[in-house]
């Protein structure tokens, strides 16, 4: 029998499937920390884009603990819980002289992607 039947659709759509994990993991960083994104180049799945790798930004917000997609893509289950932070990168840090005036990027990054600058 199929797992998903029509009567389950409203509940599934409204409930979703959060990747947030209710586990107690200590954050490696705190709001205000200057952090540099690691230069990683895995052949496997990652959510750390190339344009961010090696760049330095500042932690703006701690979103709490989520499954780590790089690990979950291989394991098939929510794995390797860790903190996700909103990190602010100034345009000039990402694009040098080519950056737009007064523009920045905020991107959500996992503990494993970051080190203190």
């Amino acid at each position: 029998m199929p797992t998903l039947t029509p009567d389950m659709v409203p509940g599934l759509v409204a409930g979703g499937a959060s990747c947030r994990m209710d586990v107690d993991v200590a954050p490696k960083f705190k709001v205000g920390d200057a952090v540099t994104a690691r230069d990683i180049n895995p052949l496997s799945h990652t959510r750390l884009p190339r344009y961010i790798r090696g760049r330095t930004g500042r932690i703006a917000r701690d979103h709490g603990v989520f499954a780590f997609p790089d690990t979950s893509a291989a394991s098939g289950t929510h794995s390797d819980p860790q903190h996700v932070y909103s990190v602010r990168f100034e345009g000039s840090e990402l694009w040098g002289d080519h950056a737009n005036a007064n523009a920045c990027v905020y991107i959500d990054l996992f503990d494993n992607y970051l080190e203190l600058a």
Binding site: P2, L4, A17, C19, S72, A73, G76, T77
Partner: peptide, 20 residues
């Protein structure tokens, strides 16, 4: 996407990696 997810054939991360 929903039916395959419900059957446990993939999670969202495997799904994205298959596109990549």
């Amino acid at each position: 996407f929903f039916t395959n997810f419900a059957e446990g054939h993939f999670n969202v991360d495997m799904f994205r990696h298959a596109i990549e």
